[in-house]
């Protein structure tokens, strides 16, 4: 029968081994040679877009790369689906955008801010998401 010290050894040993493997895999998958994100394409505008994305908690309604709140559409490949002019118009609208009656906050972004958001979405749209990019945006599949 298992003793308490054996159980303790199982806990500490198992934890240590799996944690080390986890760290190893993290280093491996974030190594530049395994980049699937076109990291070199992250411009100042993309970074500004990410700041705006966070500052307005867009993830509180939308999803991006499948992560968010499921209340508003997935925005991976949104530029492919809707085009930059419409996306900019929605972000700059002084009245809430409300497709099918579901309201979005009217952010009234400046031209510069809306451009940064578009660049951010374009960068997201180029990610290799291991096949998810084709499932999540069926309307953009054939483009």
């Amino acid at each position: 029968m298992l003793s308490k010290s054996q159980a303790r050894a199982f806990f500490f040993g198992g934890t240590a081994v799996t944690f080390l493997i986890f760290i190893g895999l993290t280093i491996y998958s974030l190594a530049p040679s395994n980049d699937q994100t076109n990291h070199h394409n992250i411009t100042e505008q993309v970074i500004k877009g990410k700041h705006l994305w966070e500052a307005n908690n867009c993830m509180g309604c939308h999803t991006i790369m499948g992560e968010g709140a499921y209340y508003a559409p997935e925005l991976t490949k949104v530029i492919d689906r809707k085009g930059a002019p419409l996306v900019k118009a929605i972000l700059q609208s002084p009245v809430p955008w409300a497709p099918n009656g579901r309201k979005m906050v009217a952010y009234e972004m400046t031209d510069e801010e809306a451009d940064a958001m578009v660049e951010y979405f374009k960068w997201i749209g180029q990610l290799d998401l291991n096949g998810f990019e084709r499932i999540v945006s069926p309307l953009a599949k054939d483009k």
Binding site: A7, F10, F11, G14, T15, T18, F19, I21, F22, L25, Y28, S29, L30, N34, Q36, T37, M65, G66, E67, L127, D128, L129, N130, G131, F132
Partner: peptide
Amino acid sequence: GLTFLSGILGTGHHYYYIGVNKI
């Protein structure tokens, strides 16, 4: 012990489709 054995590397289920390696 079982929790950590499965849970630590189980983090991988969040990494399937967010732009990191297929491993």
